[in-house]
Design a binder for these strands. Structure first.
Length: 110
DNA sequence: GACATGACGGCAC
DNA sequence: AGTGCCGCCATGT
């Protein structure tokens, strides 16, 4: 019970801390939870996420690719939201991680 | 209970 | 810099 459901809750808690205009990789979220090997489970947790207060569109993979765009209502929803928050994309349609990747200590509660 | 899959990541080539 | 392969772990069949 607390294994997966609790994990998912922790994931949502971390994702909620991602500032507008910034993004985080799945691995970074997992790292913030002290589980560097559970990046895939982060994705799965977001897949089952139904809470609107969780900015799951700010979570991308380590390459800045919107691998989970298909999980949104429309394939372009994630990109549109990020664009409206000021996130810049490169010519290959990837997020500029050097500029928009949030730092790990921004996700962990000090 | 074993096998295949996946919103991933790191490392080798 | 891009591509490929393997490792991790929970789920579904």
């Amino acid at each position: 019970m607390t294994s997966t459901a609790g994990f998912a809750r922790s994931v949502y808690d971390v994702v909620r801390r991602i500032p507008s205009g910034m993004v985080a990789s799945y691995g970074l979220v997992a790292l913030a939870l002290d589980r560097p090997r559970d990046a895939r489970q982060v994705g799965r947790a977001l897949f089952v996420c139904r809470e609107a207060d969780v900015p799951c569109h700010r979570v991308v993979n380590r390459n800045g690719v919107l691998t989970g765009a298909w999980a949104f209502e429309t394939p372009t929803e994630q990109r549109e939201k990020l664009l409206s928050e000021g996130v810049a994309f490169d010519l290959q349609g990837r997020v500029d991680m050097a500029l928009h990747c949030v730092r790990a200590d921004e996700l962990t509660d000090p």
